[in-house]
């Protein structure tokens, strides 16, 4: 009897340890996540409901910051600039990346080198890319001006002209991020099964029909993921604009990230800036969710 009780006690201890062990093992990781992810997020949310003066919170203002955003013309304009920038850049990148990926799917001499070269822009530090483009765009001694003058033209105004500056920014983003699209889409294309394409050729389809009836439908999920990733990323574009134009001329290239930065650090409106970024975060989150839902629907049908 005595020994029976003892044995049961030990077993219970063993079972208790088995239950607790996974949590014990997870604890260090959990602490890190709490410290670097959950706490800053919480802090940001709290800041967005406060008013600040000289960097210190002075009052709880509830949702006032959030409400004010929607009557702030500068915010609405920067949102519009951002949406234009993202839509234009990402769609050009998607088309260009897809075309390049289709081209690089073929095996020919030098293809490996070409694939490698195409990836280079993506791995350069964004600030360096921006400096590079400043050297190209600069109106006095930039490469474009030099080129234009060599051909008998005058100086080229890129960063000084609102429309040109915006287009210049889009060109920079396309140059830098088409490789990412290209890489994801190439991987997607390479993972497609071979036989349906051969079957389609035997069944009578030409290159265009093979693309429209097979390649594109089969690539739709990959394309959607690539576009969602790029969109989320493009919404947060900051370094390139900061170096290239600081948002100017006027507000022509003032993306939401630049406006938020100005609000927080130039105008010292920490609470307002927090509310702005929380709002943008929610918008991007909503975009991503709906994109993924759309993807599931396509997949299920």
């Amino acid at each position: 009897m005595q020994t029976g009780m003892q044995a049961r006690k030990y077993r219970l201890q063993g079972a208790g340890l088995d239950l607790a062990l996974p949590y014990l093992m997870l604890a260090p990781g959990l602490m890190v996540v709490l410290g670097v992810l959950v706490y800053p997020l919480w802090d940001g949310l709290r800041a967005s409901t406060r008013a600040y003066r000289y960097g210190s919170p002075v009052a709880d203002v509830g949702f006032h910051n959030y409400v004010q955003l929607w009557s702030d013309a500068q915010f609405l304009n920067s949102l519009w600039v951002t949406v234009k920038f993202v839509a234009l850049s990402v769609s050009i990148e998607a088309v260009l990346g897809f075309a390049l990926a289709l081209f690089c799917l073929h095996e020919f001499r030098g293809i490996r080198l070409l694939r490698t070269v195409l990836i280079i822009p993506m791995v350069i530090t964004p600030v360096v890319v921006a400096i590079l483009f400043r050297l190209i765009y600069a109106s006095d001694a930039g490469m474009l001006t030099a080129l234009s003058e060599a051909m008998g033209g005058g100086g080229v105004q890129i960063l000084g002209n609102p429309l040109n500056a915006f287009i210049g920014l889009v060109v920079l983003d396309v140059w830098e991020w088409t490789p990412l699209m290209f890489l994801i889409l190439l991987a997607g294309l390479q993972s497609l099964p071979h036989e349906p394409f051969e079957a389609a050729r035997v069944d009578g389809a030409g290159s265009w029909r093979v693309f429209a009836d097979l390649t594109f439908p089969m690539m739709r999920p990959v394309l959607a993921i690539a576009i969602v990733l790029r969109t989320i990323d493009a919404f947060g574009t900051f370094d390139q604009v900061f170096v290239l134009t600081r948002g100017g001329p006027g507000e022509a290239t003032r993306l939401i990230s630049i406006y938020g930065y100005d609000t927080a650090f130039k105008f010292q409106q920490t609470g307002y800036a927090a509310a702005l970024f929380v709002t943008i975060g929610l918008v991007v989150l909503a975009l991503a969710f709906s994109a993924i839902r759309l993807l599931r629907r396509i997949d299920a049908s």
């Binding site: 099964p193 097979l214 439908p217």
Partner: peptide, 9 residues
Amino acid sequence: FQSYALYPQ
């Protein structure tokens, strides 16, 4: 084809 090669979509 051996793998049938049906058009998945």
